[in-house]
């Protein structure tokens, strides 16, 4: 059916099979309660050590993508998008493990890179300071909002981004 033909068909409401509901019970042993939720949160906290290893892999990928951008080889839009994708991953992970500033700076790097239409020395420098700031967060183990140091870092980066 073409899109135009589809539009002329009256809306249909369909009741899907309740297979999922038939498989879950409320309460009883094994049901999710506050204790289970706390346990699940502590599992995440225990994975934080693993995260510190994972994030080093992300930094390697990010440096590699940054070096390609700097070299001027290939398509600049694609090179910028590669950086965006890695920063986007790091943004999603940081806060999940308590590194909220990684999420904030990762997000800022994404917003910055998506605005760029070229990658001259000025743009490269802007990206560089964001990568370095993310490294500082991990090196100094700045969890949460990073306190005063973290807020200043973020404010400085916002000033840099505002210049684009």
């Amino acid at each position: 059916m073409s899109e135009d033909e589809t539009k002329n068909v009256a809306p249909q409401v369909i009741k899907p099979p309740m297979t999922l509901q038939a498989k879950v019970e409320k309460g009883g042993p094994g049901a999710v309660d506050l204790k289970a939720l706390e346990k699940a949160e502590s599992v995440i906290a225990n994975l934080a050590d693993e995260y510190l290893k994972w994030v080093q892999e992300d930094f390697l990928r990010l440096e590699k993508a940054f070096n390609v951008l700097k070299s001027g080889e290939g398509d600049v839009t694609q090179n910028l998008d590669n950086i965006f994708q890695i920063a986007h991953d790091m943004k999603g992970q940081g806060g999940s493990f308590g590194y909220d500033l990684m999420t904030a700076i990762g997000d800022q790097l994404c917003r910055l890179v998506e605005k760029m239409t070229k990658a001259g020395p000025r743009e490269q420098e802007m990206i560089r300071v964001h990568i370095d700031a993310m490294r500082v967060i991990i090196t100094k183990n700045l969890k949460g909002d990073g306190g005063n140091e973290g807020r200043q870092l973020l404010m400085g980066l916002q000033l840099v981004s505002g210049k684009l």
């Binding site: 999922l20 498989k23 879950v24 019970e25 409320k26 309460g27 009883g28 042993p29 094994g30 049901a31 999710v32 309660d33 506050l34 289970a36």
Partner: peptide
């Protein structure tokens, strides 16, 4: 809080 048992879900 009474929650759900999710053990049979895929």
């Amino acid at each position: 809080m009474t929650g759900y048992n999710l053990s049979r879900l895929n």
